[in-house]
Simulated assay, not measured.
Amino acid sequence: MEAHAQPAGPFAVGTFSGGDGSRFAGLVTGRKVLDLRTVPDLWAQDGDRTTRALLERWDDVMPLLHAAAASGAPRLPLDALTVHAPVEPRQILQSGANYRTHVIDLAVAHEPEGGRPAEQVRAETAAMMDRRAAEDRPYLFIGLPSAVTGPYDDVVLPEWCAKPDWELELAAVIGRPAFRVPERRALEHVAAYTIANDLTARDAVFRRDMPEIGTDWLRAKNAPTFTPLGPYLVPSAFVGDPGDLRVTLRLNGETRQDESTKDMIFDAARLVAYASQTVPLKPGDLILTGSPAGNGMHWGRLLRPGDVMEGSIARLGVQHNRCVAESQEGRAS
């Protein structure tokens, strides 16, 4: 799988740096990148020149991006640049238990040895998923921007984490602010889509010292580098139906996840609408839509130093991350 496989559409938007290390918003066309700092009409006077600033003016910016993509303006070779996470989100809202097959597989994997038979667990979990769908109650929790890393950066496995797991997901990127929007209008507030790998420390999900308190998503989800993001923001107009995209993760070249977003219980529109009932969504915010079947718990094989994850979603490109052990120097004192 090629690390810089091209997304759908005439262009995508990302964040890059060159030899001097300074980051800039760039327009990707083929294997070239246009430095968008050189297109003055895109930017508000004296404002930031980041992808998040573009998202804040997305409706006005899109025609200008089309014009820039068609122009003969000088470009930089993609291979000469470092690709960073395409946006710095203010807020990350993550959907849990949103793929039917995935939740059933996890329930079986988490069943204690000597517990209920697998078929009973599958049947009971399937019935629970049917109830959730009928009650129309997605499950969302909060992620931290400090966990975000680039699409080709190393993922650092903390010393305390015994069961690190992959979870490749479709991420909806907010453009227009959204607060209490109806489901039928929700996707009008999505400017773009990108790829997120929402890693999980499985051993930290449940608080064994306080079972009554439930899950600990802070520790389980938010270690630095636990959310590789990108490579690019692909405008929603180029993506088509977000409910019909193939999500594939390969571990060391072997396919582990390979599922359509059709297996979601709650689609992207429902998740955006539901989140907006409580949280005012702002440009650059991310709605992670959940991960399909095929995680490490299902395979009985968790992440180890030296592993390489290649995650792709149809029409969005590919990310490529190597797992490394946390070093003595890398630990906070």
Rank of each mutant, 00 (worst) to 15 (best):
A314C: 01
D241N: 15
D258G: 01
Q45C: 00
T255L: 06
R331D: 03
P138W: 05
R322D: 03
T82M: 07
Y274W: 14
T101C: 01
H298S: 10
R331L: 12
L302V: 06
G317A: 06
L76R: 07
E111L: 03
A3P: 01
T125S: 10
D41F: 05
G114F: 09
L93M: 14
P89E: 05
G150P: 11
E188V: 09
E329D: 14
L78V: 09
G330R: 15
R270M: 08
L42T: 05
A67G: 13
L54I: 04
T38Q: 14
L106C: 10
V155H: 01
A97V: 09
R301W: 06
R315H: 12
A80K: 12
S312M: 02
Y232D: 02
R49E: 14
L187N: 07
K32C: 04
L229F: 13
V234R: 01
A147Q: 12
I195M: 02
P283Q: 08
G300L: 12
R176V: 02
L229M: 15
H320Q: 00
Y99Q: 03
T149G: 09
P177V: 09
L78P: 03
G150W: 02
A134F: 04
W166Q: 04
P86C: 01
M62N: 01
P283V: 13
P228S: 08
L316Q: 01
T225S: 15
T200G: 07
A275R: 05
P182I: 11
Q277C: 08
E113P: 07
V234Q: 05
R37P: 03
A237K: 08
D60H: 11
N252E: 05
E56W: 01
P40F: 06
V247Y: 06
A109V: 00
T101A: 15
Y152H: 15
P151H: 10
G47K: 12
V272M: 10
Y152T: 07
R137A: 13
D241P: 01
R184D: 15
D165G: 12
N98V: 04
T51L: 02
D130E: 15
A80N: 07
F11E: 00
D105A: 09
L64A: 13
T50S: 15
T125D: 08
L93F: 14
T248F: 00
V272I: 10
N252W: 07
S276A: 14
A268M: 08
A133F: 03
Y139F: 14
R219N: 13
S333V: 12
Q94R: 11
T261D: 06
T289F: 05
R250K: 15
V190W: 01
D136T: 05
R90Y: 06
